[in-house]
């Protein structure tokens, strides 16, 4: 008896990443032909920098969604990490300390989300809808609605430095993507995340501690939203209580375009990375081709629907 694997064509058709790379490559090719400005180092690095925050937050989101949940508090967490860190910096604390506290707090919010989902059995949508609003309320309350300005250069360095012309946030993004990919695809915890999202009942029957897995997933999502938020704040040079409003939907959209099923159990952080890239390149393309920026949300919406339809069709056919 032989165990045959599917042929190359079938494997390619079933491979989400391959399909996404084809779409991404097609966009890049088309834009290089249509515009003279797209394929310049400057533009590419600007695109990279612009989607790095969203991509990083979407890595954490991906872990949650693959584990069968959703984290609506990601946008609020991004803003809150920036505000906490900015306020500590202005109070004279060191950059390292301020960053660590900012991240620790969003990690704590993630942990709280996880405990609400795993211990009190709140649906993830409800639990994180609540924390989304609570955290946003803290953002406004702690700042009285005013943006926190005059951040030290040593902090803004994080979002504004280039290393050999590559923006630091993009390098951090790639590093975190590798970290998440290893976590999900190579570790026992990662296998259990897929198991819980794919069939929670089955996972609990074989003795997987599903509550623990979910709690870790939400905690990581809080942490990654915090990292993305700090890079955003460092780039903008200001921590506004209104920052990252609505970003949770972009973050979820990046994961969804990247082939991460909202029903859980499948997808990868590389998909989320490509999904975030596709969204940003689309925005960039509309600008370069002279469309008014007001039309961007419509285009993004169409891409979300198109990407998911292609993904569903692909899964059914093969």
């Amino acid at each position: 008896m032989r165990y045959v694997e599917p042929g190359l064509v079938l494997r390619f058709a079933r491979n989400q990443l391959a399909a996404l790379l084809v779409i991404l490559g097609g966009m890049v090719l088309l834009l290089s032909l249509l515009t003279s400005t797209f394929l310049t180092a400057n533009n590419i690095f600007n695109v990279l920098r612009a989607f790095s925050w969203i991509a990083i937050a979407s890595f954490g989101q991906s872990i949650v969604i693959i584990g069968g949940g959703i984290d609506l508090s990601a946008g609020s967490n991004m803003a809150f990490a920036g505000i906490i860190t900015a306020m500590l910096l202005l109070a004279g604390y060191s950059v390292v300390f301020s960053i660590l506290v900012g991240l620790l707090i969003t990690l704590g919010i993630g942990l709280l989300n996880g405990l609400m989902v795993s211990k009190t059995k709140l649906p993830p949508f409800i639990a994180t809808l609540g924390t989304m609003s609570i955290v946003r309320g803290f953002c406004y309350g702690m700042t009285q609605g005013w943006p926190v300005r005059n951040l030290p250069r040593s902090f803004m360095f994080l979002g504004q430095t280039d290393i050999w012309r590559v923006p630091l946030p993009a390098i951090i993004m790639i590093g975190l993507a590798v970290f998440c990919a290893i976590l999900l695809e190579k570790t026992k915890l990662g296998y259990h995340v897929y198991a819980v999202g794919g069939n929670e009942y089955a996972a609990s029957l074989v003795g997987i501690n599903t509550g623990r897995v979910k709690t870790i997933a939400f905690t990581l999502s809080g942490l990654f939203a915090g990292i993305g938020g700090l890079l955003m704040t460092a780039r903008l040079g200001v921590a506004a209580p209104t920052a990252a409003q609505g970003y949770e939907l972009d973050i979820i959209a990046a994961a969804v375009i990247g082939g991460i099923s909202l029903t859980g159990g499948e997808g990868s952080v590389w998909g989320a990375l490509i999904g975030a890239a596709i969204m940003q390149i689309l925005r960039n393309a509309l600008v370069l081709m002279g469309f008014p920026a007001y039309w961007q949300p419509a285009a993004i919406g169409a891409v979300i629907i198109g990407a998911v339809m292609i993904d569903m069709y692909r899964k059914r056919k093969v």
Binding site: H192, N199, A202, I208
Partner: peptide, 18 residues
Amino acid sequence: ELALIETRDVPANFFLGR
């Protein structure tokens, strides 16, 4: 209920939880 994870491959299901 079979207790398989539909989205995972055969080895991942074979060793599910251990």
